[in-house]
Design a protein around this nucleic acid. Sequence first.
RNA 1: GGGCCCGUGGUCUAGCUCGGUAUGACGUCCGCUUGACGUGCGGAAGGUCGUGCGUUCAAAUCGCGCCGGGCCCA
Length: 916
Amino acid sequence: MTSDLTKIYDHRTIEKELYEWWEKEGFFAPEKSKELGITNEKSERYCITIPLPNITGQLHSGHALVLSLEDLMTRYERMRQKETLYIPGTDHAGIATQNVVVRELLKQGINHKDLGREKFVEKVWEWKHKYHARITEQSKSMGISCDWSREYFTLDPSLSRAVREAFYRLYHKGLIYRGEYMVNWCPGRCVTAISDLETEAIDEQGHLWYIKYPIITKAWKGPQHPWASGKWAQGATDFIVVATTRPETLLGDSAVATVKSHPKYAKFIGKQAVIPAVGRSVPIIADQFVDPEFGTGALKITPAHDPNDFEIGKKHNLEFINIFNENAQILPGFVEAYSGLDRFECRKAILKDLETEGLITDIEPYVHAEPHCQRCHATIEPRVSIQWFVKTKPLAEPAMEKVRNGETVIIPERERRRFFQWMENIHDWCISRQLWWGHRIPVWYCDECCEEICPEPDVETVSTCPKCKGSSVHQDEDVLDTWFSSGLWPYSTLGWPNTDHPDYKRFYPTDTRETGYDILFFWVARELMMGIELTGKTPYHTVYLHGMIRDEKGRKISKSMENIDQYDPLIIIKDFGADSLRYVMISNSVPGLDTNYDPKNIDVAHKYCNKIWQASRYVLTNITSDEIVPKIDEIELDKLKFPDKWILSRLNSLIRDVQSYMDNYDYLRMTREIKSFFWSEFCDWYIEMSKIFLYDESYSDKHVQKAILLHVLETFYKLMHPVMPFITEKLWQTLPDNLKTTPTIMYAPWPIAQESFIDPTIEDSFLLMADFVREVRRVKHDFGIPLKTLVPLQIETETHRELFELCKNELVKIAFIDEDKFIIDKKIVPPPKSARIVLRGIPAFVPLAGMIDIEKEKTRINTSLEKAKKESIKIEKKLQSQFSERAPKELVDKERQNLEELKFKIEQLEDQLKIL
RNA sequence: GGGCCCGUGGUCUAGCUCGGUAUGACGUCCGCUUGACGUGCGGAAGGUCGUGCGUUCAAAUCGCGCCGGGCCCA
């Protein structure tokens, strides 16, 4: 085996090439595992669907985490010999995409409204074709093993068909309805209704204005002078004062409400108040909703522009007066001067006029939460309009049941509580959007008899009314909320509604939904609700929620940040490789918790890659091309040396631990333990000790160590492959052919711990030996003796004699001991001018005649003596307290033993001081 | 208003469910090495675990209060 590995690890030369090869060979498709004879119909299978990115999107740090985790899960399951499918795809992202294209067109001087619906949608498709490649190429650079032959887009014909099917079924079951309700209207860039979830409340520093409404009396029948003349309310004697944060909405007031118990205003109930500016007379009503403590205890009621007033309006059968157009500008017909004004301009104008009329009695600063559009940040305008809704309560209950009974598990568990809290208080879901880009609502209206027609899902267009046979019908203008189609994702990508589709039969329900906790409600909740309703099954058994990626100080990563490049996954991949990025993402990820991404971790990861590369080079350069190294199960067990047994024990312990970490989604520990094994045990100790054998001309059983080196490497590659797919594949491919049973490491069987190799005694003995090596090195260091200068060593032990005989060779070589002067005896007379070491109750001496500086040794001994004394006092105190009576016996015994060992050490060191 | 998360050496971080000597990384300092390692190895310094009280033989860990940072829902 010749190694063609470059001297330095260079991700650039391997990642792209390998990904192309994987794709070309079709390794990502589940069919491949069958073809290779790894799986069959009876095999377990694993399926995960990608959290579909927006078609307009660019790969950002959030995606990097998503893709790292999901590909980790996928590759792991694939290596566990399951038939594995990871489905990629993209989302048409209604509002987001429409906004982007509208803006782009505007740059070209084109108004999308002039273009018309059809032409505009064509433009968006052009845009889609152009940008689709960008996000998929970027995703591929992460190394994800998606089956690209099964890539979907939410507007694909098959997925649109699924959307119509879902709509049809829910509609005819009465779970989708159309009606006039108050919705969140975004009058900013989006100009559409949006769902509750798409709004966010922001505290606004506003004001509470106290406004006087005159009351009709016998003496005053209404305003006699024009608005803003200063004499509008002249002659009025009775007033009711309301407090409001939105004075401009008074144009749409249709009542004033107070409570029956109001000391001042109760007597006005039943009378008529006159709305300023418009001069309309409205009733003064009583309603429990009014909080007598708030403001003046009287409330202006604007049923068409406030959610609470909407309810009151319905209850009292009030008039719903819409005062705004779709951009929240004042409609004509109220007050000429305000017509066409933006709501905030109107507010200013109306306040000025109210002032003129002397109708403002007070102004207080007031902080209140105002809903904003999550996407364009415009202040939401509550608006009454005809929209489509999903009735969610009947859907929520079964979804909650699946989570309650564990058919779907949410990780981390605490997110369950959030899930239930939201589901229990769920509101109906507004699914219609006043956009052009998306799935058009599959409902037609007859122009003659007004019949509402929701045809069979195979019908793509309706031309005659089934009721009156009229031929003048038109389709609903609105499109569906994007989340309606993404809510079907786990099965619309598997051929649903065709339940005989082989993919559906084989892979549904899927296994995992991996996504950020921020979209638990947007997506997961709806997938569960719709999935259970439409397929009768929960769409996946595990919901794994990860946290957000933030910068190293915990701030949100945004495009406007300084040094944004260092957080840009595309740049990171280019400079350090996807393996490094994936490693940082995975090794820092704890379920449900935010991760602070520190750019310097990427260096650490990159160095790790290089270390892996270098260790591999060492092993492979020590094996010649014509050499046949036996496999691990072919070597003679009696030829195993102490370090061999140790590393095999450690390796199998590691495999066992990794398995448990994987089972518990503890990726942080998994990566940490593997790294620590690889670097601090395999490289630092085993490889170093292997040199003793490999460089020894007279040693004839080198194949044993070579076999173990290769075995450990191969196992390590496999354990790390789900995390770092590229470097592990590259290096695995360079291993001798007899070790490989599959064409790619992707299908190599996941390691299983061989308990017979695990030997805690060997592991412990090794630690003791390593401690001795360290101590001898330290002695040399303290006396300025070069590391490689051979020194004598005398160990006084009877109980551990066997162990030291066992590792004598290695100890002598690594610690640079003079082999002829290495003595193990049950009694050692402390040699003069020597350094003394005490470890675990075993004293040892390093005679250093001619090299030792007595004063230095005194200082050295004193330092460790002090430390030992301090420690022993602490333990003594503890043992004298109630600890020894009340604590468990094992603990007390352990402390006693510790104390004894320390006392022995102190004795030894004091003795050393005496004889110096 | 209700709920959730977080606060650990200079920096970031593990541990908290299940109480018993606080993990790792970066950085700093000292030394060694360069025939796998654009480096690597060895060693050192550095923490009253936000704060107060309580429970306990024993608290980073459990309970209550407070302070600070963030998030979600209303």
